[in-house]
Design a protein around this nucleic acid. Sequence first.
DNA 1: TGCCAGGCCGAAA
DNA 2: TTTCGGCATGGC
Length: 264
Amino acid sequence: MINLGKINNFDLTHIFDCGQCFRFKKLDDGSYIGVAYGKVLHLYINNGEVFINSDDKIWKHFLDLDRDYSAILKEFMVDDFTIKAGEFGTGIRILRQEPFEALASFIISQCNNIPRIKSIINTLCNNFGNEIQDNGEIFYTFPTAEKIASLTSEDLSILRAGYRTDYLINAAKMVCSGEINFKLLDEMTLTDARVYIMKVHGIGAKVADCFLLFGMGKLDAFPIDTWMKKAKAFYDGDMSSYGKYAGIYQQYIFYYAKEHNLGK
DNA sequence: TGCCAGGCCGAAA
DNA sequence: TTTCGGCATGGC
């Protein structure tokens, strides 16, 4: 394992179990392991120092290591609610997930619970992803859009994903045909990107914002209104001036609100 | 058994 | 423009 040293605002549980990704699991020794970018990532923290199984530069990108989250938190925690949310979610980093994986995952997530989302995605990968090995153990990559586009809803019936299956196949086909172009999305403003992606059948405001935040790195996605309005029923925070990193702030709020059963 | 889950679609009001 | 039933399925 490679020692990355101390990384400020870096908590494995809050990163991998806050609901932004679905393919990482906690091992008995407290480390986390999963697959992203077609590779196995295994990491743990010991005495505040982060250890990682590979020095591939993709992990610096994936883990968003160049961003100063402590500065963001400092700016974020300004009132009772944001302080509680920020303290609760300390250590979250917004993962830079692969666009198609994020898109597919959040299509599957709709009107679903997290254990079942993980189960469906696990079945999807085990059956249609590519096999890779790490220390003699077998893992599976997330299937490509091309692979999913080649399948029928009957092929995917083993997922037991219900009506989401056709949404998934349709989105995969649109990615393959170029009707959805991630590079094009990359250049767009947040507003344009929302309009663009929501033209896809089965992608509404929620899935769109999750995809844009976790899959496209559009940190202004997932804006204030959804959870803050609900949270305001319990707290008096005002997030209106925090546009720049709204997405990150929103993940703190979302995580906190969900864990505390707020906004029902 | 019944409620609900990190929703969305399409029709009706 | 907002509201609402239906949708597949299984975790709890």
